[in-house]
């Protein structure tokens, strides 16, 4: 094979080469261009973009935690239920006069406890993560409905609504929460000992154990992180909805997993990044936003997300050289 390295490449071929190497980035950019064109520029308006980000902050936060679980060759299917559980705890405690600090603390602890339980079932009980977190989802959803016998809780105090409706410097607080969680995730994965261990354990658990890494502990921490992210998402979502709902976030778990997968994290574990996940969430957000702007039949949204999953994962696998 002859490679002509000497010929100067045109800017376009260079751009094409970069895009060819980053399938999700190309999907993202193509979508952005299409969105802008089809919506006659409305898509790019700050109001629209801001709205879109506020709407998807919850899923974005969950997806950051989900990335850890999937990097470790697992998955967390309990996030959506944990969101509902935290939502009910927040709303219930808040409306029964516990102020806002205690509800937040208890909510976050509940999220962490769910993650810890899932993690223990996976590591100590040797239950496949799919099954363990599916069972956890059932349990968390059950407890969420039990609190008020499945009635939604309204009338949250104003301070609690800040997370979903307030802004700082014109930017919605949930977007800032998302950004901070994402930055923290990036920091953990790329700058800390723990992050290094996540990639090694996810890549080959036996090898990691024989290199002195306590794989169980790494996994346990990841499921706790995932649970805490779900709890944070629960706070943001509850605040935006202005209610505690036992049946909220029924489909959010799928979107959280989809964000990670579209973002190029391998389901086999050991490969992927938070930045990819963020692009993944943005792709899903843009798709839905575009369809809303275009007044396209909303029913095909799920189908389009499904198609994007298939498309990006296939492209990723081609890139990774998997047949």
């Amino acid at each position: 094979m002859e490679v002509s390295t000497d010929t100067p490449k045109s800017i376009w071929s260079q751009i094409l080469a970069i895009l060819g190497k980053n399938p999700r980035l190309s999907v993202f950019l193509i979508l952005a261009v299409i969105s802008t064109a089809l919506s006659k520029g409305i898509f790019l308006s700050p109001a629209n973009l801001h709205n879109m980000l506020r709407q998807y902050a919850g899923i974005g936060i969950m997806a950051v935690g989900q990335t850890f679980a999937i990097l470790l060759a697992g998955v967390d299917l309990s996030q959506g239920s944990v969101v509902a559980l935290v939502s009910m705890i927040l709303a219930y405690l808040n409306t029964s006069g516990c102020g806002i600090v205690w509800p937040l603390v208890v909510g976050l602890c509940a999220g962490a406890a769910c993650g810890l339980t899932s993690g223990l079932i996976v590591t100590r009980g040797k239950v496949p993560p799919f099954i363990a977190t599916l069972a956890m989802a059932s349990i968390a959803r059950g407890i969420a409905t039990l609190i008020t016998q499945a009635r939604p809780v309204y009338g949250l105090s104003k301070e609690l609504l800040v997370f979903g409706r307030g802004t700082v410097g014109g930017i919605g607080i949930q977007i800032l929460v998302w950004a901070n969680v994402a930055l923290l995730g990036v920091f953990l994965l790329t700058r800390t000992v723990y992050g290094r261990e996540v990639y090694i354990v996810g890549g080959n658990e036996r090898s990691a154990n024989l290199s002195g890494i306590n794989a169980h502990r790494v996994k346990l921490a990841a499921y706790i992180l995932s649970g805490v992210c779900a709890a944070l998402a629960g706070i943001v979502i509850t605040s935006k909805l202005d209610m505690g709902g036992p049946y909220i976030s029924l489909t959010d778990n799928v979107q959280s997993v989809a964000s990670v997968v579209i973002g190029g994290t391998s389901f086999a574990g050991g490969r992927g990044s938070i930045s990819g996940t963020i692009v993944g969430t943005l792709i899903i957000a843009m798709m839905n936003n575009l369809m809303n702007l275009m007044l396209i039949n909303p029913y095909i949204q799920q189908g389009i997300i499904g198609a994007i999953i298939l498309l990006t994962v296939t492209m990723n696998q081609r890139k990774a050289g998997v047949r």
Binding site: R196, Y199, I200, S207, A208, A268
Partner: peptide
């Protein structure tokens, strides 16, 4: 299966 992590870089494998 026990010595290296195939999907990660040389650098990362050694840095363990």
């Amino acid at each position: 299966n026990e010595g290296v992590v195939l999907c990660r870089s040389i650098e990362e494998n050694i840095s363990v």
